[in-house]
Design a protein around this nucleic acid. Structure first.
Lengths: 228, 228
DNA sequence: TTAATTTGTTAGTCATGCCTAACTTTTTTA
DNA sequence: TAAAAAAGTTAGGCATGACTAACAAATTAA
């Protein structure tokens, strides 16, 4: 699957649906993805997703039985991965060369990922000397769509006494990203779990000099590598 | 008009129409632009332009009387100039940093110019150290939309014996641009008019070692500064 | 200055992609 | 296991922006 002619005639919408499905299926925790779940993720009505899924099925990017769960074909997955590749390369460019901050890159990359030009993205990658991670710590798929996914350990899955290193954050929410930088967390920060409170699942963490209490929801969006 | 909030909620289509109108009105030779002319330029039906013009009139970007000629308001012109600015900055980036050739830049820039982010384009400009001309020799408007248009002298307007320097070419056609580079012409080439043939308006020109015959149509797309 | 031609307008259609409301199937749970 | 809840589907509508066909106005030419 090295060079497939660039006959990508998908609309922006079609691309958005395929990418969303990929993120729920492959990157998210859900083993099965349903119509309503996809609708909620994309913030559209279930009727809209149903319609689009029908279309993507005839185009052979999606498979599913009536009333059944959704899945991507190899083709569909390939398109989604290429979008993620474009998204992350653009984020890297904005962050490293154009003075964008952590929380500013996502929205503009959402637009840029739909630009259709194989050459553009491959040259951009070369220009940046083949970065492997985007500004949020996520791996960048290569030109063949190979995707070296690092198993994502959520900060919320650790226990008291554990020590870990921040390797990535979810980039879906600007407010979350602002919050992360405000309290002083960054990629590679070493974090110690001081306490996990049973009552509301909030977590007391220490990093550098700082001690903070974070919510379960916050910790679900922070990915780490366990050190101890 | 220095900073105007970025409340540009125009669709890609609306932007395309405004830009096209600007190019016909300000950059083209036509003093008056009509509906059918715009339709032909955009390769859509006159009914489509009529419809869109109606819409742009209610939005106060275009003015015209029924059955009358089209004109842009200050607002409409401002939007068009910003699109041209984005187009030319992207072309410059593709050409100077991403190994795109003369004839490859246009199509991708047509997509990139619709990306909505003031910061993106201003940072891109800063990153490239404020270039003043795009790869085809056209002036790049600044962030305030100031547009230092150089009077365009068509190569076809010169006479036998004249000597001129190539300062810009029209970037609308890939085939034309390929043709230009194939025969060896480039920005700054010094060109001497050897003969203008009355019969078919073809022109015999000399540049460097080369002597070529070019058609009137070709010469209409080449802009020069007269030297002698 | 009338007729022919060009230009502009209107009406009605179509595809895309969104919506709500109503309905059906599946899953959950009491 | 039957009722309730959740999930999925269908029908019908709307906005955008294209189209064709038919018609009206303005311009050009005979």
């Amino acid at each position: 699957m090295t060079n497939k002619l660039n006959s990508n005639n998908l609309t922006k919408s079609e691309e958005d649906y395929l990418k969303a499905l990929f993120q729920l299926l492959v990157e998210g925790k859900s083993a099965k993805v349903g119509n309503n779940q996809l609708a909620e993720y994309l913030k559209v009505s279930p009727a809209s997703t149903n319609n689009m899924i029908k279309k993507l099925k005839t185009k052979q990017y999606v498979v599913s039985e009536k009333y059944g769960k959704l899945d991507l074909t190899k083709e569909g997955e390939y398109i989604a991965v290429r979008l993620i590749r474009k998204h992350r390369l653009w984020e890297t460019f904005l962050y490293n060369y154009l003075n964008f901050t952590w929380d500013e890159v996502h929205d503009v990359a959402e637009q840029l990922e739909h630009i259709k030009s194989q050459k553009l993205i491959n040259e951009l990658e070369r220009f940046m000397e083949f970065p492997t991670k985007d500004p949020h710590g996520e791996m960048i798929p290569n030109a063949d769509g190979e995707y070296l996914a690092i198993p994502k350990v959520m900060l919320s899955s650790l226990s008291e006494g554990d020590i870990c290193r921040l390797i990535a954050v979810d980039d879906g929410s600007v407010n979350f990203l602002k919050y992360v930088s405000e309290i002083g967390l960054a990629l590679s920060s070493e974090i110690k779990i001081l306490e996990v409170r049973e009552f509301d699942k909030s977590i007391r963490i220490q990093f550098g000099e700082a001690i903070e209490t974070i919510t379960r929801k916050f910790a679900d969006n922070v990915f780490v590598k366990k050190v101890v």
